[in-house]
Design a protein around this nucleic acid. Sequence first.
DNA 1: CGGCTTTGACCCGCGC
DNA 2: GCGCGGGTCAAAGCCG
Length: 288
Amino acid sequence: MAMEELEELKNSWTYQDELIKELLDNESPFFLASLDSNSTNCPSSTDNSLVTKSINISTVSSGPNMDDIESGLPVTSYGIQSHDVSHARSFGLERGLNLMMSKQETHETKYTLRIKTCGNAMADDGYKWRKYGQKSIKNSPYPRSYYKCTNPRCGAKKQVERSSDEPDTFVITYEGLHLHFAYPFLTLDPTQFLEQPNKKPKLTNSKAQNEEFENASEIDESPKYVNPSPVVVFEQELGFGVMGSQGLLEDMVPLMVRNPSMKPTSSYSSSCSYSSPPTSPSFSWSNN
DNA sequence: CGGCTTTGACCCGCGC
DNA sequence: GCGCGGGTCAAAGCCG
């Protein structure tokens, strides 16, 4: 391993340790709200949060069929039914693991989805994105829009453009991941992971992995459901790729279509163009 | 008035 | 070296 890589490894794990410490710190301003188990909006068990999350997911899963996601590499997506949370979680974790392994090999951090719109339904993932640019694409009548996650600690970006072949299809490219989408899938019981027969060795560093962790540090949009400890355990058991991949999957699934009855929140939306709204009302937990 | 969008300019990488 | 295209920046405008 080159000296630069060693240095990178050293630096990345220093940062990781800091974040883990932060996660474990009940006084951390970043996680304080999440630890408020007395809050009526904050279930004390992750299972509850899972239910909440899944219910919300199911509300959007009635939109485009999973077949509409023609490519979401290396993992496409999956439907989650509110009545089968544990399966969804395990399945999601399995998928996440697969993604993690894949990403380890390829170091890819970009994922592309093709999403067919359903009538006037908005293609909206319900999270905060700030549009920072738009470009006309050669040989395409539709411009491409560039969005960044509004959270300063999250480096997630996405590009949205209409398919020139199918005007009713959006091509959305994600770059970077959100950890906060992953938290609801994390168990509160650390032993669940400790008892995993196929325990994965702790991953060594890679640039992509480090990037994922940086993205995984994003927490502000779903703080009420964060439980730090399993996060750490999970990281230690499976590495950060799973975190990121879960975030990705969560990003993908609700992204397709919101409830069509939901009013557009911007003029951009009302013009039948793809838009991310300034606020994120899609899920039951708010993002402050 | 603050936050968000718009949009032209700028930067950079790549192919010729 | 030059042109082109993709990605980003940032000032101005818009809107609630």
